[in-house]
């Protein structure tokens, strides 16, 4: 079993981390890069696979060399065995299409030349926090010509039979869950509702072993990262990066400023009379009026 988990470094949009300039544009240099928050669901699904079915997990990302930090974080959470960074100036400013071409090529290379018995599964989160397109995963899968399972909330793999059975949200709706099957190899997009289950003591013991093993590996994570550029992947620069991107960004709207401050009335909780007035004032709201 060899699985690949796709991850991406995105600006840390959490309050206190993200920086905007005066015009409301993101200040990329002043905002730290973190692992795309939605990728943790893919990592959890891949980890469950590694714990329950064993095998090798490779983390893969496309981005500048600084993404190695993101790979370390990913490596720690999925107990990855190694990591591949698709990184080259020629890949810069790629849209989702050009990104998918590069990732497809990298996965194929892993499948044909690195993984002993080929790659069995690829996991991806369902969208990134910066682009929010949700394109890259499905497009990469289209390039591989594999079946895709999206909005997956639980997963069971029968390696011998070469089949995957999954529960997925129909139309992304938690109220409607269907069970589907696919042959291996296949592409899995984990939903934020994905819950790994470890109901066997043996699974949990393996989990503990892997955590211990990974701790040492993550400390020297650089030794386990392979960087692939366009030459390594035998990719024509005309088909990747900005030149290979059909998307034309016509303009970027700055994020509007927050509306003016609201009026605030301060009430001392010790002041019984004022609190009583406050409760009376708020009582109609509690009734939903």
């Amino acid at each position: 079993m060899h699985t690949v988990v796709l991850t991406k470094g995105v600006p840390d949009f959490r309050e206190g981390q993200v920086a905007f300039d005066e015009d409301g544009h993101l200040e990329r240099g002043a905002t730290p890069t973190v692992m795309n928050p939605n990728d943790k669901h893919a990592l959890r699904a891949a980890l469950q696979t590694k714990v329950r079915n064993g095998g090798h997990v490779s983390l893969m990302s496309m981005g500048p060399p600084g993404f190695k930090e993101v790979l370390r974080e990913g490596m720690e959470s999925v107990y990855a065995d190694d990591a591949y960074l698709v990184s080259d100036r020629a890949f810069a400013a790629a849209d989702t299409w050009a990104t998918s071409i590069a990732l497809t090529t990298a996965i194929e290379r892993l499948d044909e030349h690195v993984a002993e018995d080929g790659v069995d599964m690829v996991f991806a989160g369902f969208k990134t926090a910066d682009g929010e397109t949700g394109h890259t995963g499905p497009q990469t899968c289209w390039g591989l010509d594999w079946p895709i399972l999206t909005h997956v909330v639980s997963l069971d793999i029968d390696e011998e039979a070469g089949r995957v059975r999954a529960k997925r949200l129909v139309e992304g709706d938690i109220e409607e869950i269907e069970t589907v099957e696919a042959p291996l190899p296949c592409f899995v997009v984990a939903d934020p509702e994905f819950e790994p289950t470890y109901r066997k003591a043996a699974h949990r013991l393996t989990h503990k072993d892997l955590r211990e093993e990974t701790r040492e590996r993550a400390e020297n994570h650089e030794e386990h990262v392979t960087v692939w550029d366009h030459e390594e992947l035998n990719l024509d620069p005309d088909y990747v990066g900005l030149d290979g991107s059909p998307t034309i960004v016509s303009s970027v709207d700055p994020i509007p400023r927050a509306p003016a401050e609201r009026d605030a009335t301060m009430v001392d909780p010790e002041d019984g009379e004022a609190m009583r007035e406050l409760v009376e004032e708020m009582a109609p709201l509690a009734g939903g009026e």
């Binding site: 069971d156 059975r165 529960k167 069970t179 109901r199």
Partner: peptide
């Protein structure tokens, strides 16, 4: 499908 995932593999 009424059976659970684990039932399916006999786990």
């Amino acid at each position: 499908m009424s059976e659970t995932i684990d039932d399916a593999t006999g786990a």
